[in-house]
Design a protein around this nucleic acid. Sequence first.
RNA 1: GCCGGGAUGGUGAAAUUGGUAGACACGCAAGACUUAAAAUCUUGUGAACAUUAGUUCGUGCGGGUUCAAGUCCCGCUCCUGGCACCA
Length: 955
Amino acid sequence: MSEYQFRETEKKWQAYWEENQVFKAKDDFNQPKYYTLDMFPYPSGAGLHVGHPLGYIASDIVARYKKQQGFNVLHPMGFDSFGLPAEQYAIQTGQHPAITTEQNINRYIEQLKNIGFAYDWEREVRTSDPSFYKWTQWIFSLLFNSWYDLVDNRARHILVLEEHFEKTGNQLVKAASDEEIEHFSAEDWFNYSEEEKQEILLKYRIAYLSEAVVNWCPALGTVLSNDEVKDGYSERGGHPVERKKMMQWSMRISAFADRLLRGLEDLDWPEPVKEMQRNWIGKSVGAQLAFQLVDQEEKIEVFTTRIDTIYGVTFMVLAPEHELVEKITTTEQKQEVEAYVSIAKNRSERERMTEVKRVSGAFTGAYAIHPFTNEKIPVWIGDYVLAGYGTGAVMAVPSDDDRDKAFAEHFNLAIVEVVNEHEKIINSDFLTGLSIKDAQMKAIDFMKDKEIGYAKINYRMRDAIFSRQRYWGEPVPVYFKNDIPYLLEEDQLPLELPEVDKYLPTEDGEPPLARASNWKTNEGYELEKSTMPGWAGSSWYMFRYMDAHNNDAFVDEEKQQYWQNVDLYIGGSEHATGHLLYSRFWTKFLYDLGYVSVDEPFQKMINQGMIQGISEKLLRTKSRTNNIGVAGSKGVQLLDKEEFEFASLDIFSKEDLNGETPQLENYTYVYANINFVKNGVLDVPNFIKEFPEYQNAIFHTKGGYWQNGEYIKTVSDEKDFKTKSEVEKMSKSKYNVVNPDDVIEKYGADTLRLYEMFLGPLEQFKPWNTNGIDGTAKFLKKLWRLFHDTDGNFKVVDAEPDKKALKALHQAIQKAEYDIENFSFNTSVSTFMICVNTLTELKCNNKTVLSDLIRIIAPYAPHICEELWSLLGNEGSVSEGGWPTFNPDFIQEEEHTYPVSVNGKHRDNMTFALDAPKEEIEKAVLANPKVQKWIEDRPIKKMIIVPKKIVNIVV
RNA sequence: GCCGGGAUGGUGAAAUUGGUAGACACGCAAGACUUAAAAUCUUGUGAACAUUAGUUCGUGCGGGUUCAAGUCCCGCUCCUGGCACCA
């Protein structure tokens, strides 16, 4: 009997697809196109785990479905192959990151091919490949050579700006730029030296150099991200971290803020992701005004969204880093202020923002004049005010702002109520009695007249820092002449990563590229030593797939116009504010300069949920040597010959186990490799066989103990050694990674694909659990058997199909279409199961029915369907076999079984013809003895008959 | 703190527009085939009471709207994701 042989069959068809280039996207511009893309992975050393393919399978199903529907489908895969882990590994081992990255990619490709994805592998891209990053550098050059014109609200070439300067200076130009650019005339411009001109232009460029505050760790000689810093110390190594100003490349993304915000409206994206981007961009409409300091020249600029509460301002607060702090602090207050500033400065922004409840601050001794009342109000500093947002100073309105209020209460400052419970302004001179809105308008008019302030829109989004003091990233194609940055010529690109002796910063704190010998241009000018951040390559890669091997352009114009942008993008929502915002920014930029025809990269997006792992922990006595031994890890050598004892979880009472560590102080939790645990019970004999360091360890259970693989009974036969299971993110260090290869080895790729979809809605987070995988494996066997007789011979009959079979089939076709369009893949799998169950019951082996059936299942389980498709006598791939046409006639019902309820409670079912008149139904229902029993003698108040739905009698 | 998403059998889940809650699977139990096991097949499987029909309860908790609520409204609890003193 020939059972379905998934191993041979899957390999066979994977080879067929590759040899015949079945999923090659054609540059046939007359065919309708469909572009579906997965967020490309970072190729980590741990390999692909079962969480990765979830989204990939979903987009693969859509790709195959669209191909069957006649679309020219672009469904590529590539690798985001620059990144920190490879660099860390290189630092530890001295191995070049390019080598480990290449190895990891090869492993990923092998794993991906194993699952049978319909990728056009010819278009694969790698961001770390010089032929790719040549164009990343090229786009950087473009950004460097551009400025943002606020009049036409678009990016333009820098030459246009220079023309303006030559003609009229910078007075008439409205551009996004650094603050504080002095006005100059055309004549001034003419007289400036080359260096002076370049310095000015740099303040307008979209890619520009500026001082930025970073977390500098002198001991590590490197810059750390916010989450690598804890309490002012580096997370790794515990070295002190300073907030330091450094020259950094930045991207003027803030110029695009409003377009990025408005563009969201037309995108078919999950609402939460859009909302996150809106919050990130953080548009606020308000007013900017200045407070004159008493006895000083300077003014304090503030931005407020609540100018209507201006009469409630009783003090001001500056950020500790504010430039005026030093100037205005009085001698009496100096000591206190300096002490406060030095503490506050070195707390990371993240920390300052997290500790909401801890109010702290200091009085500067200075006073400002309230511009409306001319009263003197004190000026404080406090670390709840951030230097990076707005002007770095606030006018405090303790009556209407919680943080100001907490500050005022803590330091005993005045509070004046200015808004009453009816949302009307009170105690506010000429604003009293107005609504909030009217008061805002009137206050702004007042400020304009007196020239003390104006209406302003503020964005929370800051420019993005683009430099990284690292090795494994794209070199920035810039050299320095007299400290002025100049671009490399296009023919010098790609600027390839140099060889270095170590992947660490230099002794004097320069980035690793400074180690390269002769990191200079041919003319001897110094090249930029920092590299680009991880998001550089991923900000434009979606265009590269359209034309992956073009050496003359990042994408051919005509090809881009055909493929437009991504029709369906699938990936995790964790990229909501990073990658998804930056790639929108770059796309808008490229659009402005006419290099692409779309100003959004991803038209529709759906998020897939994370598949979590289940880790298993064992209670083990703590190590004497304080060595953190991990049970189940071969790599960890335990010192001495320690005799460990393990304790089954059920030995301890609930109270003992409360909290992370058991009350029994000698024990600690260690991770166990999940391969040795089944249903929360450890396989002790095999566990110690694999890990000889525990050969003599004692494993206590409720009834006795295990030693040397033997169970010794002391009390009872309760010999199960129980572990503690926990749902956590899949990770190598938790020993809970499930590799898709193992699942495929056991069940086949089709089963894995079906099962991952069957697990539940795509967007949902769920722990991986193979409990139900047999169900999908059985389903495929049943499908196979539909085409075969009991002896395993292929047997399909070419005849007029049975009506019932057609009905089952067309119900499935309808549902399959509906589900794919709605990305409800889990319900599709159920539908296929129902259909196959019905056809099995009907003993259907009709060729027409079965041909259609495998064409709708093919996107989900392509290998088995290819095999059956060819057994049916078809040439070529089922993916070229078209999509069956749904015919509503076949599922037309003539009658419907109505649930009959009395007072909303279901009592019986009755079947009526669809065209049965209401009166007839009414009569029949009332005549039903079961119904009568429930009505008793009570009068009927109402009778509700909803066609094809329900009958309800109200008494 | 703010903004999302969620809570349905022993488990994963379904219920598309307010209309038979638990489809489809897993697991479990019983049975068939088998020397036996695996595989396969059949039957049962929300809970409680009744054990024959049947009745009552049941979608996190408490209210409400409706002939009818998992679905809509109000108030809570818990889980989860994101953001972060945004002036």
